[in-house]
């Protein structure tokens, strides 16, 4: 098994060492905050493992390529939008699943669409309506989803150009 991000982790540990030397009290708080984040995303990571396993089990790599690959068409966009809206937790919690799907043929444009569609948080919509109003919430939701698809199309075009 090859670990990813070892150098990145080392760099963060160096940062923590610097903070420990300069602001010892802030180091404790930062560690506590990181610990809280870890506890919060724990269940999300379990969901990610489960979903990845389900995808691997129910879909052949060929299926994934059909639903999310170059010829997935409208269905691909709709899946990416729905997955983005339905996904919870921080973006980085979903990297393992996306990496796995990419190996199975998921195209870059749909990844970009998925990431941007995550701005639409269904459970938080009532709170957004309360703070900013129903009209604002409806407009920003529609524009965000349009922007998510436009970004996906542009990313695909950039990808196709660079591959020519």
């Amino acid at each position: 098994m090859k670990f990813k991000g070892v150098k990145f982790l080392m760099a963060v540990l160096v940062l923590y060492a610097v903070v420990a030397a300069l602001h010892h009290e802030k180091l404790i708080t930062a560690l506590e905050k990181s610990g809280m984040v870890l506890v919060k995303i724990g269940p999300i990571l379990l969901i990610v493992i489960f979903l990845t396993a389900m995808i691997n089990y129910f879909f052949d790599p060929k299926d994934a390529a059909v639903h999310l690959g170059d010829k997935s068409g409208l269905k691909g966009w709709l899946i990416a939008l729905a997955a983005g809206i339905a996904s919870h937790g921080p973006m980085y919690a979903w990297y393992p699943m996306i990496e796995d799907l990419k190996r199975h043929g998921l195209r870059d444009g749909l990844v970009a669409t998925f990431f941007y569609a995550r701005a639409v948080k269904v459970p938080l919509l009532p709170i957004m309506i309360d703070y900013f109003g129903l009209t604002f919430t409806a407009i920003i939701t529609v524009y965000t989803l349009i922007a998510a698809v436009v970004q996906g199309i542009l990313i695909d075009q950039i990808h196709n150009k660079s591959n020519k």
Partner: peptide
């Protein structure tokens, strides 16, 4: 797959704390 990505995830979580 998730375990292989743990250093990346831990690094991001560490940065979030900071």
């Amino acid at each position: 797959g998730l375990v292989a990505m743990l250093p990346t995830l831990l690094a991001v979580i560490g940065l979030v704390g900071l």
